[in-house]
């Protein structure tokens, strides 16, 4: 190739006319940089379709996006403690329903520790109420107060929403609430026991001496 150059012949090993350049025509410059991130477009995009159907789907999409955030399937990252507790934060969590998967459909290995985690903070709560004040430390008291506050708020907004409801019904609702709580506590206790069993069963299977898992164990200890 190098030899060819000196004789004034084309620097290509093929006849460039075959690709459509006539003799002596200037070849395009070599491109050495990547194409621009936002290149100019020669043609403007056509406007989007609009109409009743499209608007409805759009509304559905936006609504769905908000809804999924409130579903129990939306697993939030455990956030690091903030210096200032934000007032608005309180309301975000409250809306979540609880979700108990159908364990018959899932591999067994997914079960035990998962339950332990889910029941963790709540079983603590159950214990607190069960054993009375013997275990309370300041943190627990604070937590309790917070919860009570939340509940109070909830009821208040209830009132605002439905003014028509008489006070009689309200008191009835209060009873309901208590019933629920009792039921919940019962369930937690069951869960707790079960969880303990599971834990023992699966202890060795879990292989906690797994090298990289040592951090996780520490996490677990906080529950």
């Amino acid at each position: 190739m190098a030899g060819n150059k000196g004789r004034g012949r084309a620097a290509y090993t093929f006849n460039i006319e075959a690709v459509g350049f006539s003799r002596g025509e200037k070849l395009p410059d070599v491109v050495l940089k990547p194409p621009p991130l936002f290149p100019d477009t020669d043609y403007k995009p056509v406007p989007l379709k609009t109409g009743e159907g499209e608007d409805y789907v759009l509304a559905l999409k936006q609504e769905l996006r908000e809804t999924v955030k409130r579903m129990p399937y939306f697993v939030e990252t455990p956030e690091e403690k903030q210096d200032i507790e934000r007032y608005s934060k309180r309301y975000v969590k409250v809306y979540k329903e609880e979700w108990i998967p159908d364990w018959r459909r899932l591999p067994r290995e997914l079960m035990p520790r998962k339950k332990c985690k889910k029941a963790g903070p709540k079983s603590k709560k159950a214990k607190d109420t069960g054993k009375g004040t013997s275990l309370t430390n300041t943190a627990d008291v604070l937590k309790k107060i917070e919860e009570l506050e939340k509940r109070g708020d909830g009821e208040k907004s209830d009132e605002e929403n439905e003014e028509k409801e008489g006070s009689k019904e309200k008191s009835k609702e209060g009873d309901d609430d208590e019933d629920d709580n009792a039921a919940e506590q019962e369930e937690y206790d069951e869960e707790e026991q079960e969880e303990e069993n599971d834990y023992i069963n699966s202890y060795f299977e879990d292989g906690d001496d797994f090298g990289a898992d040592s951090d996780d164990n520490m996490d677990e200890a906080t529950y």
């Binding site: 609702e173 609430d177 629920d180 369930e187």
Partner: peptide
Amino acid sequence: RRSSDEDATGEPKAKRPK
């Protein structure tokens, strides 16, 4: 459903099966 009551406690799971 009373919206906030229901949401606050989550659909009380124990209640429904019962």
